[in-house]
Amino acid sequence: MSLTPEERIELHGFNNLTKSLSFNMYDICFTRTKEEREAYLQYIDEQYNADRLTNILKDVSDIIGAHVLNIAKQDYEPQGASVTLLVSEGPIIEAPKEAFEESPGPLHPDSVVMHLDKSHITVHTYPEYHPDEGISTFRADIDVSTCGEISPLKALNYLIHSFDTDIMILDYRVRGFTRDINGHKLFIDHEINSIQNFIPEEIKKQFDMIDVNIYQENIFHTKCKLKQFDLNNYLFGYTEDALSHQERNFITEKLTEEMNEIFYGKNIK
């Protein structure tokens, strides 16, 4: 059962529904030498260090209207970083209409303040590389878990714009239940047909997308793969003008193969 702003149902106590968004993104680069690979990994570690990731998660916290209780962050050796925010409820106000709409959330953390409690936001990064084929891949996993009225999907638009993304794998699930004043259980409190409806149209046009949804279980899954790419954005320290036609085709093939394997979840060769 879902609720609309016009048909609000009075609840028995706090909204106990737990809404969890898992946002996994991949950035891919072609690094043909050991020096290029090391430079790429250093660039990723600087671009997505624990301090910058903390600022991103703080913005997510503002978007979903949470108070940050505790921050744990760590830059790892030789590479990678993790940040965890424990958050609690913000001031309780009447939910704005957009909190219930199946539409993209804000690009910036404006004053969207909602009821939230005993929740967390985490990010972990995983730079890695192929042992001999020149492909380096950066993965970031972000999990936003909330209790209360607003969905963490409202932070998705901001997250997409915070990372350079070739592949996105998105999971959303509503767990548990809350009760109305008569004791009737409510297993979801907002309309949702697809995670895609929370992604702006200009972003969706850039990606091929696949949905796998289990509506009766309130489980939603969307995968996104960039349709076209400029080879210059995947070379480190030089442009495609420095490559022969054969080299450009080889690198394009390797990049495409990497994207397809991640998108479809299986080795092609």
Results as ranks from 00 to 15, higher is better:
I63W: 03
S61M: 06
K58H: 04
K97T: 04
E46I: 15
V60Y: 12
L85S: 05
P96S: 14
E77Q: 12
E101A: 09
F100V: 09
S82H: 03
I64N: 01
D75L: 04
G105N: 01
S88I: 12
D75Q: 13
P91Q: 14
A72P: 01
L57A: 06
D59E: 09
V60M: 09
S103F: 02
L85I: 07
I63L: 06
P96H: 12
Q79C: 12
Q74P: 00
A66L: 03
R52Q: 05
Q47I: 09
L69F: 03
K97G: 01
I64K: 00
G105F: 00
K58N: 00
D45C: 04
I93T: 07
I63V: 09
I93C: 01
A50W: 01
P106Q: 00
V87F: 03
G80V: 03
I93P: 11
S88D: 14
K73C: 05
S61K: 11
Q79G: 11
A66T: 10
V68W: 10
I71P: 15
S103W: 03
V87W: 01
A50R: 05
I63F: 08
F100W: 15
E98L: 02
P104G: 08
S88M: 11
I93G: 03
T84F: 15
S61E: 09
L86Y: 13
E101T: 04
N49D: 15
D51H: 15
I71M: 05
I71Q: 09
I64D: 08
V87K: 14
L85R: 00
F100E: 14
L85E: 05
A66M: 04
T54I: 04
P104A: 12
F100S: 08
R52M: 04
L57R: 00
K58L: 11
P91D: 10
I92D: 02
P106C: 01
N70W: 14
N70P: 11
I56M: 05
V87A: 08
V87R: 15
D51N: 15
K73W: 09
S103E: 09
K58F: 07
Q79Y: 10
A66E: 02
L85D: 08
Y76L: 09
Q79W: 11
S61I: 07
